[in-house]
Simulated scan of single mutants.
Amino acid sequence: MIDISLPQFEFPVLESGWVWLAGAGPGDPGLLSLHALNGLQQADVIVYDALVDERILQLAGNETEIIYAGKRGGKPSPKQSSISIKLVELAKSGKRVLRLKGGDPFVFGRGGEEALALVEARVPFRIIPGITAGVGGLAYAGIPATHRGVNQAVTFLTGHDQNGVAPDQLDWDALAKGSPVIVMYMAMKHISLITEKLMNGGRSAAEPVAVICNATQQHQQVLDTTLGSCADDIAKSGLKPPAIVVVGDVVNLREQLNWIEPALARTSQKEEEPAL
């Protein structure tokens, strides 16, 4: 167990019958917050999502029950209502429950739905934010979400709605004209339709785009492309979700700010060096 005691700081206690809804961050275990780590080490039960790194779960106590509740597109997954009911049942039985979600629970993580279910069942809870992939994944690709002189606004959107289709309630023309940088979650499935809508709204086909797969992981992959070529390039690349797609001139900064690939190269070189 990791000692996370800090001078002059008292960590909260996860009490029996409580649920902590915590973000695990975008993948790299080092991006986990201290509050989330504290919850991992106190919980009787951890209910975790598909995008939570297995190394994070290894930080839990030896006696902790681990329950998988991952939801992946195109694969058999538990219903959201079933997950919420499970959280309530565990808490009502007196368990100390940590609900661990990839990224941030309140950014396309359906954490709000689970929190409302807890409210309705009168189960006390705590929200622990996490680094969302739309920020952390960009940073690990060397792309700032905002940069002075480039953009004063950024829009986060999901590439499909609750029915798995491209969201038609979005005003794509307004997004195309009004947001200099667009960061899209879960957009690969409908990327051809999305890029068409953005170009029809006035975005240039030459606008830079980056597709970040397995964000912040050692096997992270980044595809540099353009809005007009994006769909074809993704198809040719063989890249698979989960992925973040970012559209805008901040992508051009990646050429200078790509810090992760040199860092990984140095790590690999050290591992290959013979011991003296």
Rank of each mutant, 00 (worst) to 15 (best):
residue 245 V to K: 03
residue 139 A to L: 13
residue 98 L to F: 11
residue 87 L to T: 05
residue 275 A to L: 12
residue 130 G to L: 03
residue 85 I to G: 09
residue 227 L to S: 02
residue 174 A to H: 11
residue 106 F to T: 08
residue 160 H to G: 08
residue 218 Q to K: 13
residue 185 Y to N: 07
residue 245 V to W: 01
residue 220 Q to F: 02
residue 101 K to F: 06
residue 71 K to Q: 08
residue 235 A to E: 13
residue 246 V to S: 03
residue 212 I to F: 00
residue 267 T to I: 13
residue 146 T to H: 01
residue 9 F to C: 03
residue 167 P to Q: 12
residue 260 I to M: 15
residue 98 L to N: 04
residue 146 T to M: 06
residue 188 M to N: 07
residue 196 E to A: 13
residue 9 F to H: 09
residue 82 S to Q: 15
residue 65 E to Q: 14
residue 163 N to Q: 15
residue 6 L to K: 12
residue 180 P to K: 07
residue 264 L to P: 00
residue 28 D to S: 07
residue 118 L to Q: 06
residue 143 I to H: 03
residue 94 G to C: 15
residue 162 Q to C: 08
residue 183 V to Q: 05
residue 5 S to P: 04
residue 104 D to S: 12
residue 63 E to T: 13
residue 260 I to V: 14
residue 241 P to G: 08
residue 183 V to H: 03
residue 140 Y to P: 09
residue 138 L to M: 10
residue 82 S to E: 15
residue 8 Q to A: 14
residue 162 Q to I: 08
residue 151 N to A: 14
residue 81 S to R: 15
residue 50 A to Y: 09
residue 199 M to E: 11
residue 194 I to M: 03
residue 141 A to Y: 03
residue 162 Q to L: 08
residue 264 L to K: 10
residue 27 G to K: 03
residue 27 G to V: 02
residue 204 S to N: 14
residue 115 A to V: 14
residue 155 T to K: 13
residue 54 E to R: 11
residue 267 T to C: 02
residue 228 G to W: 07
residue 197 K to R: 15
residue 136 G to M: 06
residue 167 P to M: 14
residue 6 L to W: 13
residue 14 L to R: 14
residue 135 V to T: 10
residue 271 E to F: 09
residue 138 L to Q: 05
residue 42 Q to T: 12
residue 23 G to P: 03
residue 38 N to L: 08
residue 228 G to S: 04
residue 134 G to T: 07
residue 158 T to C: 06
residue 1 M to T: 13
residue 23 G to I: 00
residue 47 V to E: 02
residue 175 L to S: 01
residue 133 A to G: 12
residue 135 V to F: 10
residue 253 L to Y: 13
residue 40 L to Q: 06
residue 197 K to I: 09
residue 21 L to H: 09
residue 130 G to Q: 01
residue 186 M to N: 01
residue 79 K to S: 09
residue 266 R to I: 13
residue 37 L to K: 03
residue 94 G to Y: 14
residue 214 N to H: 11
residue 184 M to Y: 05
residue 67 I to P: 00
